[in-house]
């Protein structure tokens, strides 16, 4: 369910060429961070918006697109954000 919402928000924000979301929550079930209900996810995304941006800026763009989801549903988000030219090389 959360994976679906993440996908929708990122698709709307970036119109990515490639978007993959892996739900790693099961691997972290029971540890302190997972207790509050937030899941662990990994996102691979390729979009024009990341061209010429620093790593921090790329992550900030993604966090902004996900908004309030970062407060509750998501405890940790691994991000691999590439521009189309970086992805091809």
């Amino acid at each position: 369910m959360t994976t679906h919402t993440i996908k929708q928000l990122l698709n709307d924000a970036f119109q990515p060429e490639l978007l993959e979301i892996i739900d790693n929550s099961a691997a972290h079930a029971g540890h302190a961070g997972a207790r509050s209900g937030g899941g662990h996810y990994h996102v691979t995304i390729v979009a024009d918006a990341f061209e010429g941006k620093s790593l921090v800026q790329r992550h900030q763009l993604i966090y902004k697109a996900l908004g309030d989801m970062m407060k509750h549903q998501i405890h940790a988000l691994g991000i691999n954000a590439l521009s189309p030219s970086e992805h091809r090389t």
Binding site: L55, V56, H59, Q60, Y63, K64, M70, K71, H75, A76, L77, G78, I79
Partner: peptide
Amino acid sequence: SHWPTYPQLYIGGELIGGCDIVTD
């Protein structure tokens, strides 16, 4: 910092990133 998760590493007052970016 417009950064919703921890840890956050700063060098020279600037946000470097979280665990992902630091590892990278």
